[in-house]
Write a protein that binds this DNA or RNA. Structure first.
Lengths: 122, 122
DNA sequence: ATTATTGTATTATTATACTAATACAATTTA
DNA sequence: TAAATTGTATTAGTATAATAATACAATAAT
């Protein structure tokens, strides 16, 4: 899948977010070896240092771990992956609701709006 | 309401977004005069130049207009305000769904998750 | 008429993000 | 054993965001 970078946020944050999504959605499986920093950087068309920063950032969450000279690997901990997925979903919903309520929508309106959007796209 | 600034995005973007929300949610009414750049800056605890940049940014959307020496005012165009509200809502929903789908959730799961969240908080 | 208020412009400084080129250390691979 | 691969570190340069201190022009208010 494309990297789809924009200038709204730091590149390394977007890179980390993209890889994180790929882990959570199963593009990368537990135990898989990630491509090297250089390969990922080439694929995303960014400087290796920027990709390095993204991976360091991502590693803080524990979804990947590093073996100094053989590469980076996806955590084998299935529960960790699913827990991260749930946590990100909660965060997304929270932020979405917060913004919509700030704009003056009521909960019932938000739910109705969501259902309408689903009907339109199905 | 507090300004609640963080360092995730440029300050001037957050300021513009906050004022925009206040216009859309009715904190500022059509025709109202906004506080001066200096007063807003003091209230938000930012440099006047930063607030100036935020207001210039916000003005591009047409929700406010400037009268060179008397101040800035909220547009009297009610339709413009409601159209902006709807546009922002669509954008929020779009981004939310996009992220959730990228994480691997199905539409039915998202809707269920939303409804559960509503029940928890009511 | 004078003063105050308003948006705007100018210039400088600092911090951060990002790019870039390169080198190093440790292990894996051939 | 020798070469390749890997993550990591170092140093430098550029662009943007934000702060800061002023100044200016035009109008409103007194």
């Amino acid at each position: 899948m494309a990297w789809l970078l924009d200038d709204s946020r730091p590149i390394y944050i977007q890179l980390a977010s993209k890889i994180q999504s790929d882990i959570i959605s199963g593009v990368y499986k537990p135990g898989d070896k990630l491509p090297s920093v250089r390969d990922l950087a080439m694929d995303a068309a960014v400087n290796p240092n920027t990709m390095q920063k993204a991976l360091t950032e991502l590693e803080r969450g524990g979804l990947i771990y590093t073996q100094r000279t053989s590469g980076r690997f996806i955590s084998e901990d299935l529960q960790k992956v699913s827990a991260m997925k749930a946590a990100l979903a909660r965060e997304q919903i929270h932020q979405f609701l917060k913004t919509m309520l700030r704009l003056g929508f009521k909960k019932s309106e938000i739910l109705q709006f969501m259902e309408e959007t689903f009907e339109e796209e199905s």
